[in-house]
């Protein structure tokens, strides 16, 4: 009986903790446990990862594993970025899972940068070649680390395609072999169209 009561009270305490934790999570935008480890990021990536600029990727709603890998690659210098390397090291020291989890848990916020409708239309046609992995609309597949391209800023998407083509993003990464081979077949001027198309998708 006592044991049962203890068990029951423990369960109640556990349940209360869950409710409390959930309560904390929805209490306010700064109450997420990952916020205090991610506050630096908003200077460039926008509050809660909702990037406002053409060149900084939207982190809000991005797959956690993808963010974690990106931070690890930036920190190790495999993915070269003088701007990101120190901050990736900071994120790793603070707790990369908390940082990635914070952004992944945010509501997706598509870029406010608008694309030229003609470029979107051209991009839609050109995107057929990407659909095999990213899906027709660019939704991707988190289970295969294929990122969701929808609503990312066009400048960011274009820059990444250029980096893939020149093999300057994570050289030697086996997972990126296919995309790099594909990007080499795409003329530079098409990148802007593809970027316009995916950035306009929701």
């Amino acid at each position: 009986m006592t044991t049962n009561l203890t068990r029951l009270s423990m369960a109640v305490v556990a349940l209360a903790s869950v409710v409390l934790a959930a309560g904390v999570a929805v209490a306010g935008p700064l109450d997420h446990p990952g916020y205090v480890k991610s506050a630096t990021c908003s200077a460039c990536h926008g509050f809660a990862g909702a990037s406002r600029s053409d060149t900084m990727p939207v982190l809000a709603g991005m797959d956690a594993a993808y963010i974690k890998k990106a931070l690890q690659d930036y920190a190790s210098g495999k993915r070269v970025s003088p701007e990101m390397e120190p901050f990736a090291k900071q994120a790793l020291q603070l707790g990369v899972d908390d940082v990635a989890g914070y952004f992944a848990s945010q509501k997706k916020a598509p870029t406010p940068v608008t694309a030229d409708p003609a470029a979107v239309a051209r991009g839609r046609t050109a995107a057929a070649t990407c659909a095999g992995c990213h899906g027709a609309d660019g939704k991707g597949d988190p289970s295969k680390q294929i990122p969701d391209l929808r609503g990312q800023p066009p400048g960011y998407l274009r820059n990444q395609m250029m980096l893939f083509k020149a093999d300057r993003r994570s050289p030697g990464d086996a997972n990126l072999k296919a995309i790099k081979t594909l990007m080499k077949t795409v003329p530079d001027q098409t990148f802007a169209d593809l970027a316009a198309y995916y950035s306009s998708q929701r």
Binding site: A43, C44, F47, R52, S53, D54, T55, M56, G155, N159
Partner: peptide, 20 residues
């Protein structure tokens, strides 16, 4: 020019982070 492009992105973002 790429760094300059990043500078523009940084400015847009951080101005919004402060005042948006």
């Amino acid at each position: 020019p790429q760094v300059a492009q990043n500078a523009v992105g940084w400015a847009q973002s951080i101005w919004h982070d402060m005042l948006g």
